[in-house]
């Protein structure tokens, strides 16, 4: 009996390491993103995508080849490329008569499409059109969402989460105060127009500890129009948003804080012995001298016996 065909296992140590690094982890690495071109993207659509890629640079890949596919009809190519590059965010540029200057932004969960939102780029001013100093690559930007529509419209609500996911980069413990130099602002109106603007922060003296903020536009500046969307179902999204058990804070038992911030604790007392409870003293209940003598005698006898017992044991 020969050895049965083994189940596919990595042959090299390096391959094993790669596969291990791709396995799900409780604390995930920074989300990688890919940017690709669909059928005949226009100059503008391509430039918008390139600028988004520039903003996202250290954890992004720009795939310059054109791909003949329509993401909203068949997204297998995106899933495949995301698997290959181990990316979970993607941007696609395309152009057609029906949907001019089309940008599709989306994300995947477990290498399957989670959300996909189509935006039309109407007015566009590239980063290179602003002749000034840009921010450092890989810096964590501040994100601003202006307008009440971001919460009222379901599509925009998801788009807000998607934009946050795109530009949030990674969770950081601490941040350098002088390193806060980039702001991206997203303003949405009722008719589904989203104004993306990006600014560089100048910290000016204010006579106090907190500086006065001045902004300088560095681009890109795009006016997006919301088009088609393909959003994850509520249960899939919930599954994707699950926090692993290891990261959940352990709830402390019997502790609570009230509205004023006072810490309250609950203590468990043992059962009270009612028989030995000291009640009100009365002369009538007092022991007489005879009784007291007898009690003393009894105690002495008990002690003697205990001693005897001990001696015998020894």
């Amino acid at each position: 009996m020969g050895v049965i065909q083994r189940i596919k296992k990595p042959t090299t140590r390096k391959g094993k390491k790669v596969l291990l690094s791709r396995e799900p982890k409780p604390i995930e690495d920074t989300k990688q993103s890919i940017f690709l071109q669909a059928r005949n993207p226009s100059e503008r659509a391509r430039k918008v995508l390139k600028d988004l890629y520039d903003l996202k640079k250290p954890d992004a890949a720009y795939l310059s080849r054109k791909n003949d596919f329509v993401p909203f009809e068949d997204a297998t190519l995106i899933e495949k490329l995301c698997y290959k590059k181990d990316a979970s965010l993607f941007g696609v540029s395309s152009h057609s008569k029906k949907r001019p200057h089309n940008i599709i932004l989306g994300r995947t969960f477990n290498y399957g499409i989670l959300d996909m939102i189509e935006l039309g780029a109407e007015n566009f001013k590239a980063m290179s059109d602003f002749h000034n100093m840009k921010v450092l690559a890989g810096i964590k930007p501040c994100l601003l969402f202006n307008g009440p529509v971001w919460e009222l419209n379901q599509d925009l609500k998801r788009l807000k989460s998607l934009f946050t996911d795109f530009f949030y980069r990674e969770k950081v413990e601490s941040v350098r105060l002088q390193g806060l130099e980039h702001v991206i602002s997203f303003s949405a109106t009722d008719d589904g127009t989203i104004y993306l603007r990006s600014y560089r922060i100048h910290l000016k003296k204010s006579g106090q500890r907190t500086p006065r903020i001045e902004l300088e536009e560095i681009g890109p500046s795009v006016d997006f129009k919301l088009r088609r969307t393909k959003l994850a179902s509520a249960d899939l999204f919930k599954e994707a948003c699950r926090i692993p058990k290891e990261l959940k804070p352990i709830a402390k038992k019997n502790q609570s804080t009230d509205a004023f911030g006072t810490k309250l604790g609950r203590i468990h007392m043992g059962k009270q012995d009612i028989n030995r409870l000291q009640t009100r003293k009365m002369k009538g209940l007092k022991k007489s001298t005879e009784e007291k003598k007898q009690m003393l005698l009894k105690k002495k006898m008990a002690k003697k016996e205990a001693k005897k017992g001990n001696m015998l044991n020894a």
């Binding site: 396995e23 799900p24 982890k25 409780p26 995930e28 989300k31 979970s88 994300r107 995947t108 969960f109 477990n110 989670l114 989460s161 946050t164 996911d165 949030y168 969770k171 950081v172 413990e173 601490s174 941040v175 350098r176 105060l177 002088q178 999204f237 599954e239 994707a240 948003c241 699950r242 926090i243 692993p244 058990k245």
Partner: peptide, 21 residues
């Protein structure tokens, strides 16, 4: 020589890229 602030825990929950192990 750099002044650093400690950020609190983020409150916005973003979806993971892979399921919980």
């Amino acid at each position: 020589e750099a002044i650093v602030v400690k950020l609190p825990q983020p409150t916005t929950v973003l979806p993971r890229s892979k399921p919980v192990p």
